[in-house]
């Protein structure tokens, strides 16, 4: 059994937001919707000031509260751990959004455009009416993962089977792979480094691992 996760090497991230842009391009999300975003955190007081860049999004929890509360079963969990949404049955009640402790879900009620009142060529071509009035979020580019695997590719290794944000990351911050495979890229990284997961105390068993130092 696989469990796909993402590792985030916080030592490397420079906050360039290329992952954000790549995600928006790959998934055609509307303005204000960032399935992958990077927090810019400045902490401390002069002269001891620290700046951290922290990519966040859906954590694809092993015990996802969004799925448990969903009254329609629109939110589901695949056998490989990826949490998805069936837009055809979601009613847009927003319960999943208040159940998610990572603020990873968006509901857009009207079609919006990035520049003015008319869609750009890209927005027109990629518009998906199914996404209006329902919950949306990062799906680990599951279409890419599935298509790649069907062609014998390895998610996290072969770009054609890997989420767009990971492919786009210029600093090698984001890595994707199978946590259950001890030889996978992510398992190796986690074996060699110290890491944490956000809001772990809430018991969601999140699937994004933040690396902060070597062992």
């Amino acid at each position: 059994m696989s469990r796909y996760i993402m590792t985030v090497d916080l030592r490397r991230c420079i906050g360039c937001q290329t992952c954000t842009a790549a995600c928006r391009h790959a998934n055609a999300t509307p303005p204000g919707v960032q399935w992958r975003k990077v927090l810019d955190i400045e902490s401390g007081e002069f002269p001891d000031v620290r700046r951290s860049f922290v990519p966040v999004g859906c954590m694809h929890c092993a015990d996802p509260p969004c799925m448990h509360v969903c009254p329609t079963t629109a939110t589901y969990q695949r056998k490989d751990g990826i949490v998805g949404i069936n837009y055809e049955i979601c009613i847009g009640c927003g319960y999943c959004a208040v159940a998610c402790p990572y603020q990873a879900r968006y509901i857009v009620h009207e079609r919006e455009f990035a520049y003015g009142e008319r869609p750009t060529e890209q927005e027109e071509a990629r518009f998906d009416a199914r996404r209006i009035g329902v919950a949306t979020k990062c799906n680990f580019c599951s279409d890419r993962v599935d298509a790649g695997k069907e062609n014998g590719l390895v998610p996290g290794i072969d770009p054609e089977a890997t989420p767009a944000c990971v492919n786009a990351c210029i600093a090698g911050v984001l890595q994707f792979g199978d946590r259950e495979d001890p030889h996978s890229n992510v398992s190796q990284l986690l074996a060699e480094n110290q890491f944490f997961r956000m809001h772990e105390e809430l018991g969601t068993d999140p699937g994004m691992y933040y690396i902060f130092d070597k062992k």
């Binding site: 448990h68 329609t72 009613i91 009640c93």
Partner: peptide, 24 residues
């Protein structure tokens, strides 16, 4: 609640998940 949901004409779907959803 019906006024608030994004897809009100699918409201019947709210009955689909009695296993874990308190809303259902």
């Amino acid at each position: 609640v019906w006024l608030e949901i994004g897809r009100p004409w699918r409201a019947i779907n709210v009955l689909f998940h009695p296993h874990t959803s308190w809303m259902t």
